[in-house]
């Protein structure tokens, strides 16, 4: 029996090690490429993994005066932080209203939002662009524009948070009401402190999304490089023929984007797991 167990454990270990190698390979590859010099070696694609010489040239380029990388990084950070704060507030408000309050049109509202969610997001890109343009929030105003779009759509992402609120006992609310608290007080004093995990989960998702937004962000900021976010700027180094030999610099930029997001994610992983697990069961 124990012998059999040892063998099966050994198999599992082997499989897990193989999986880990496959999963880590792209990150290792990316990191190795970022240390290849675009000056003394070659900045484009190569078909070997380990650079002939390790240098920090690509990283130096990002922070040299030639490149607006710090600015793009700040833009993304601003969008991410603002979206985190406002989206989270909006999602909490919507979730509380839909979970705790009973009002006319509640079901209808939820159904309409469900139906709206079935339209692909890219469909409305051109229309959104012109709406933002009318508000002066494209090109040079793209950063607040992107925040606005993110916040405006946040209300529809209430499912997971509402599901969590649903599990908090209603008796709590009733007790507080007997004590004379109004509904706003109940939300602020009772529900929010009890919902720390789900709030962190919501905030984490809102924070991570802007780092990967290259489609709509490039549409809104088009032709105005001071408003780019990192994803827009870096993807054009790979895809636009204009930028020859930028591949190693793309890798370096990618690493710099990935590190803080990954660290943050790892720190808050516990909450993320709680959120996705809870969300998946409630549906």
């Amino acid at each position: 029996m124990t012998r059999k167990k040892h063998i099966s454990n050994a198999i599992v270990y082997i499989v897990l090690i193989v999986i880990s190698v496959i999963w880590l390979f792209p990150f290792v590859g990316l990191a190795l490429q970022s240390f290849r010099s675009y000056i003394s070696e070659f900045g484009g694609m190569v078909n070997y993994l380990i650079p002939k010489k390790f240098t920090l040239d690509s990283y130096k380029f990002l922070f040299s005066g030639e490149c607006q990388f710090p600015r793009w990084y700040m833009n993304t950070l601003i969008i991410a932080v603002a979206a985190t704060v406002f989206n989270t507030i909006i999602i909490i408000c919507v979730s509380y209203a839909l979970s705790r309050l009973r009002f006319k049109g509640r079901r209808a509202l939820m159904n309409i939002w469900l139906v709206l969610g079935m339209f692909p997001g890219f469909l409305t890109m051109i229309c959104l662009y012109f709406l933002l343009k009318m508000l002066g929030l494209t090109q040079s105003g793209a950063v607040p524009g992107l925040i606005l779009i993110s916040v405006a759509g946040a209300g529809m992402q209430y499912y997971v948070c509402k599901g969590y609120f649903d599990t908090l006992p209603k008796a709590l609310d009733e007790a507080a009401r007997i004590d004379g608290a109004n509904r706003a007080q109940i939300l602020l004093i009772m529900i929010v402190p009890l919902s720390k995990p789900i709030i962190i989960y919501t905030a984490l998702l809102a924070f991570m999304a802007p780092w990967c937004d290259f489609v709509f962000a490039s549409y809104v900021a088009f032709g105005y490089s001071a408003s780019y976010n990192v994803a827009v700027a870096l993807q054009q180094w790979v895809w636009t023929n204009d930028f020859q030999g930028y591949f190693t610099r793309f890798c370096a930029g990618g690493i710099l984007v990935a590190i803080p997001v990954t660290i943050l994610f790892m720190c808050l992983q516990k909450y993320y797991v709680e959120g996705v697990t809870g969300g998946s069961v409630k549906g």
Binding site: F130, K133, Y219, F222, G223, Y224, S225, T240, N241, D242
Partner: peptide, 21 residues
């Protein structure tokens, strides 16, 4: 002056002629 590739100029300009360079 902004760097916008000559191969993509039309793609960018046609999105919004008024907003282009």
């Amino acid at each position: 002056v902004e760097p916008v590739g000559e191969g993509d100029a039309a793609k960018n300009v046609l999105t919004d002629v008024e907003g282009s360079a």
